[in-house]
Simulated assay, not measured.
Amino acid sequence: MSAATSASPAAKTNAAPSTAPNTAPKSVRRRNAGLGLIAWLVGILFVLPVLWMVLTSLHSEADAATNPPSLAAPLTLDGYREFFGAGGGPSPWFSLANSVTASVVSTVFVLLLALPAAYALSIRPVKKWTDVLFFFLSTKMLPVVAGLLPIYLFAKNSGMLDNIWLLVILYTSMNLPIAVWMMQSFLAEIPTALIEAAQIDGARLPVILTRVVAPIAMPGIAATSLICFIFSWNEMLFARVLTGVIAQTAPVFLTGFITSQGLFLAKVCAASLVISLPVLAAGFAAQDKLVQGLSLGAVK
């Protein structure tokens, strides 16, 4: 009996750990399944308006204006045909070209100015560099409407109204503060030993920036350039006030489909989808660099 009683606690202790590995993975799997379900629901919630816009763009104006909307309405491409000028309306290609020019050129200028500035604030920090960063960011705190009238008067007196290069200058100045702020955090992760080794080998600052700093910080540069491109592409207030016909951008062209007579939902949805495609394509092409750049320095 004593042997049996002495063996029973040992058997219990040996049996107890065998049940733990079987219960723990099940709870983890349930939790992961719950988180995955929540993620899918949130993703569907965000994608649903885009899908609704796509469906509305494929309906006729009469079907798109029904309340409640008709999901089983016949599909048509009339909205896209009217957007591209098939019905005798204006062509969108000139406005799309203006948006591409203003967004791409301003993004290039922002990178050319932000990279040396971020280098000075991170790898070779100046005195009170935190105050400098706060000053850069404080320029974004001014409401855009507050600076609209002075900029309009300046553009009118200098003869730059309805000029695409005025938008390039404005978009460069508007995106430069956030670009410097982002690039500073990215460049702060670069080991200074690499910079010192390049300086010992005789490399000067332009060579260091282009051949040492830029390749290492490429994910951060890609993320910064994509965000600046999106901000420039979507900007409409300055483009609506400062441009007319020659420098009209795609968002301004989009507002021309909204009329007081109504029946414009299908055309607006079709135009919105086409105008959003360049930004979606750029984000999809650089999604790995964007995620890597935005998460750079998050995990030590």
Results as ranks from 00 to 15, higher is better:
M1R: 15
T5Y: 07
S8L: 08
P9A: 12
T13D: 09
N14L: 11
A16D: 07
T19M: 12
N22M: 11
S27T: 13
R31H: 15
R31A: 12
R31N: 11
G36N: 07
L37N: 12
L37S: 12
I44Y: 10
F46L: 06
L48W: 07
V50C: 12
L55F: 06
L58Q: 02
H59D: 04
H59Q: 15
A65Q: 13
S70M: 13
D78P: 15
G79N: 11
Y80W: 10
R81P: 11
A86W: 13
G89W: 02
P90E: 09
W93C: 03
L96Y: 05
T101Q: 05
S106I: 00
S106V: 00
V108M: 09
V108I: 06
P116L: 00
A117K: 05
A118S: 09
A118L: 01
L121T: 03
R124Q: 06
P125A: 04
P125T: 05
V126I: 09
T130S: 10
T130E: 13
D131G: 07
T139D: 01
P143H: 03
V144S: 08
V144P: 08
I151L: 15
L153I: 03
N157L: 10
S158Q: 12
G159A: 10
Y171I: 02
P177S: 03
F186R: 01
A188K: 13
I190W: 02
L194P: 11
I195N: 07
I195D: 10
A197S: 15
A198L: 00
A198M: 00
R204V: 02
V207F: 14
R211F: 10
V212G: 15
V212W: 10
V213Y: 10
A214Q: 09
A214H: 15
P215S: 14
A217H: 07
M218A: 15
M218D: 08
G220H: 02
G220Q: 03
F229W: 06
F229T: 05
I230Q: 14
T243K: 09
G244A: 08
G244Y: 04
V245C: 14
T249G: 07
T249P: 06
G256E: 06
I258K: 08
T259N: 08
S260M: 12
Q261A: 06
Q261Y: 07
L265N: 13
A266E: 05
I275A: 01
I275Y: 01
Q287K: 11
V291L: 04
A298Q: 06
